[in-house]
Design a protein around this nucleic acid. Structure first.
Lengths: 167, 167
DNA sequence: TAAGTAACTTGCATATTGCAAGTAAATTGT
DNA sequence: ACAATTTACTTGCAATATGCAAGTTACTTA
């Protein structure tokens, strides 16, 4: 496995950890890629491309480059199919798990997300267990999704009998 | 105190909590504003404008609007000076504290930040205490900074006579 | 009442994004 | 062996968003 690129010497706005984090992945897409790698078992360019949020291919390529340059992900050509490149979180990348977990819990509490209540409650109760399982999957390269792809939520629920309203 | 605006009906890309979070503050600036409100005691437009990272005023105005629309912050005209507007985190906003804390710890571990080692270690040891104190400040409107403004770090250290080398 | 100040807005040059088409390398089907 | 696919991208271009400098408006202070 080869790191995608050496560390980039891009602009840094401040020495604050939060600020530096945002310099690395403070945009609309980077964390989604990290999430997909971490808990949805996605590995390849086209999997990212077709997964849920529909990122443009040029942006996807760019983000994969940046995340690689930041040392968050690494790329390796698939053994079984030479066309495929498998992206994988580095130790630095998987270490973002607690951040993602807290963010997940926060949003599930304060926004109308597609995450089932029971699921969220379990995450809150068993933070450590969830993190341990996440880490285990990473170590063992287990691609089984830990969370499903959530459907977009309508702002005003309880409307259609079985359909999801608009989209 | 009046909410800055009602909830915006902007585009939502998916029902995933992470994705929804990024729709709200997935950019280079929003989380910095939240950080400044949460742990640096900043309150007004010009304080944000002149603090550390130098955001452009039009973008700052836009982000304050967005964060208000998302229900993360609220604005109130200062009693003692009618020109000033004090921004403040809402309960939903202050609830991001665990996310910021984990992000802070992550970056301090994996990047060259300006955060002193001892400080970070204490944060890791006493997560709950830090969060409790953060929440207390918010409730009591105590603007005392919990973290100082960190200076930008140079990529190639070992220059100054008494400097820390590469941390 | 003149001179700040604070919080924005406006205009404009420069990125960054999104979208639709390509393209090159590896693989599969015949 | 060779054409058709598939995969991981690039490229071109229009639409947005960002950064910067210069206003503008509502209050305050001298």
């Amino acid at each position: 496995m080869v790191p995608v690129a050496a560390k980039s010497n891009a602009k840094q706005r401040s020495g604050c950890p939060i600020s530096i984090s945002l310099d690395l992945f403070g945009d609309r897409w980077s964390l989604l890629i990290i999430r997909d790698l971490m808990v949805r078992g996605l590995r390849t360019f086209s999997e990212f491309q077709h997964a849920g949020e529909k990122i443009a291919t040029n942006v996807l390529a760019d983000r994969l480059r940046q995340l690689g340059a930041a040392g968050l992900i690494a790329a390796e050509r698939a053994a079984e199919d030479g066309r495929r490149i498998h992206y994988r979180l580095t130790p630095k990348g998987i270490a973002l798990a607690p951040v993602l977990l807290e963010l997940f819990i926060w949003a599930a509490h304060h926004e109308q997300t597609g995450a089932p209540c029971a699921f969220v409650e379990q995450m809150e109760r068993d933070r450590e267990a969830i993190l341990a399982e996440t880490y285990r999957r990473w170590e063992q390269r287990d691609p089984t999704p830990l969370i499903p792809p959530f459907k977009p939520q309508t702002k005003s629920p309880a409307k259609s009998p079985k359909g999801k309203g608009k989209r």
